[in-house]
Design a protein around this nucleic acid. Sequence first.
DNA 1: CGAACCCTTGATACGCTTCAACAAGAGTGG
DNA 2: CCACTCTTGTTGAAGCGTATCAAGGGTTCG
Lengths: 259, 259
Amino acid sequence: LETNATSNGETAKPMRQVRVRRPGPAIRFTPVTVGAALWTAVLGPTALAPEAVAALQAIASVRDLPAGSLLISSREPSRDLCVLARGDAALGTVPDDGHFHPERTVQSPGWLDASSAWLGGNAALDAVAVSDVQIVMLPRAALQQAMARHPDLARRIVATLARQVHALTVVAHDLMHKDAETRFADWLLQRCTPETESADGPQVVALHERKRDIAAQLAITPETLSRLLRQLSRKGLIDVMGYTVRVLDLAALRAIAAA
Amino acid sequence: LETNATSNGETAKPMRQVRVRRPGPAIRFTPVTVGAALWTAVLGPTALAPEAVAALQAIASVRDLPAGSLLISSREPSRDLCVLARGDAALGTVPDDGHFHPERTVQSPGWLDASSAWLGGNAALDAVAVSDVQIVMLPRAALQQAMARHPDLARRIVATLARQVHALTVVAHDLMHKDAETRFADWLLQRCTPETESADGPQVVALHERKRDIAAQLAITPETLSRLLRQLSRKGLIDVMGYTVRVLDLAALRAIAAA
DNA sequence: CGAACCCTTGATACGCTTCAACAAGAGTGG
DNA sequence: CCACTCTTGTTGAAGCGTATCAAGGGTTCG
């Protein structure tokens, strides 16, 4: 049988699992190096007004943390919005003693938690750094004042939350009505189009995360994901080589995803 | 075997299914009768400032629609936020020809859609009136201007969306990790505490919706829900009589829900 | 009355998990 | 360097959970 095939240097392997560290010691305290690029990446497509950017910079605090740090805990009330400026993180739950159980992942410029600080309660999920990360915290009270002075800022926060509502609605819908194969086809197609749009050769999707984390996102076991990969490659839809997936039959994959 | 037991007049039965009507003709056009009570019920616990209420009233349009109307369509771009002022509605999907397939229900004072109007695209789900309803529409552009003038209004819209993000996160989490019995126990307990908090007798939960709609909320088939009810009543945890459920062993139910 | 709708119950089938075993790196320490 | 362990991914066998299909009874409405 074919092996994992990582020795031929096809793709970089995802990092190994890192134990969750509790107090998350800061490596260094970088003075604000994040610029306007981060805010436009995170708060919508168009550029922000310079004074809005200045207001954000004034209240933001930046932190560098090592892989494995607990970034957000669902056990303490959250007072800040939280942006992931660099690195990868995972949202999920940490049982009292056991290992971290991820539910979905967040990549470099993206929100870790834009919602729970507004509710005065705890976050719904824990967040753990998968790689070394840089996170940006926005205190809710200060952001609220900035929103009052800059209505456009309020508009963008609202749009950000609306996007998350939309995305979560789709996630819930898919979990209710689509089976594992369909969800995986969806996932694969989503990672397909924004990549190399070269119409000639087959699309190549590199898996940056461990396969068990992909399985967790799809709410299936790693065994099932492994079987799905083999099943699809046997049908000639994809070609799996370690952490590289070549999509051979895009149309057929779309047909499965549309089920 | 025991029958549905509705003839003894225990509880009001839910309405029968009504076919989805396409253009949804308005019954009558009520001039704004909704008061500040609706806005505080929908925009957070504390009372709004009178001028914020006035701003909302100025831009809101009210509509009365009969049961079965299509309130929100995921096929047209949505330009308004939508509040359910009276009656019950269901969110779900309408296949091209088939029947409506609900996913969750919304009750009297609540948001039908507070998010999709901000995104410039279509709504994620369709909404159908289960009973005769009264809905209130808020044009996004006008609401945005009102938010700029009344920062507290922006604060509440943000909190509303944050609540929805939280709720949907929990829904997705439960769908991933909890089985049908656990989800139903959760659902039952959620309808338990806010009701008669009388510590003496057993809690009584009246099912206002059809059982197949409850099943749809739990992402299970009606058959499975029926079996769950019998299973729990055989174990002595609940007592089912038509559309009335008496909770006999609250502690055991909580134990199942905590799984 | 029949027709349409709802709920229930049983038999069966399928999807996915669980459990167990194994192969292949990657880090560690002799 | 090699043995040892830890982690990951893969595969197979067995089993649970839920869906599907089919049948039947109750209620409401025309």
